[in-house]
Design a protein around this nucleic acid. Structure first.
Length: 168
DNA sequence: CGCAAGATTGGC
DNA sequence: CCAATCTTGCGT
């Protein structure tokens, strides 16, 4: 099909939004007009200021600001000075939660996702409802998926134990 | 203003 | 196992 997910899809608890994104189509229209659709295969939920693994746990900063706003937007940031990681902000204003897109069909790994989609700083705050270059389309719901602890956040103490990684 | 650490990846 | 590469938040 070809329908963009409505804003409401993202205005739910991130623990509902994250697994719901599995199998959905991440769509990117590049500068040359080319459009690619990638089924989402792996995600992780980062939930609010309490979650020590979530960047929002640092409070409101220039970098985390978009997560504190209403969901349905893009949160990107550069990691290790090399990779732009893609997150989709979830929840209502103040929830400060987001879903990290860790893998899409053909491109496993958050860093590879950002590279394939040619992301950069300009995507920060982009609206998934209006953007002409990035959005998510509905697809047949996934009935089965796995969960595990989130990757690379050993510093988060008890929060590192949460099974908030969802993958096919 | 300096510095250590980071939701990673790829090469040795 | 470890370097690459640079932004960010925090301490001085």
């Amino acid at each position: 099909m070809n329908d963009r997910l409505p804003l409401n899809f993202f205005l739910r608890d991130v623990l509902d939004v994250a697994p719901s994104l599995l199998g959905k189509l991440l769509v990117r229209q590049f500068d040359d007009g080319r459009i690619e659709r990638y089924p989402i295969t792996e995600v992780e939920a980062y939930r609010g200021t309490e979650d020590r693994a979530c960047h929002a746990s640092k409070g409101r900063t220039p970098r985390t600001e978009v997560m504190f706003q209403q969901g349905g937007t893009v949160y990107v940031y550069l990691i290790y000075g090399q990779y732009w990681l893609l997150n989709l902000v979830a929840g209502h204003e103040g929830d400060a939660s987001a879903v990290l897109i860790r893998g899409i069909e053909g491109f496993p790994g958050p860093g590879r996702v950002g590279r394939e989609l040619q992301l950069d700083r300009s995507f920060y705050g982009e609206s998934l409802s209006d953007s002409p270059r990035i959005w998510v389309e509905d697809a047949k719901s996934v009935t089965e998926f796995k969960t595990s602890k989130r990757i690379g956040i050993e510093y988060a103490g008890e929060w590192a134990e949460k099974l908030w990684r969802y993958y096919l």
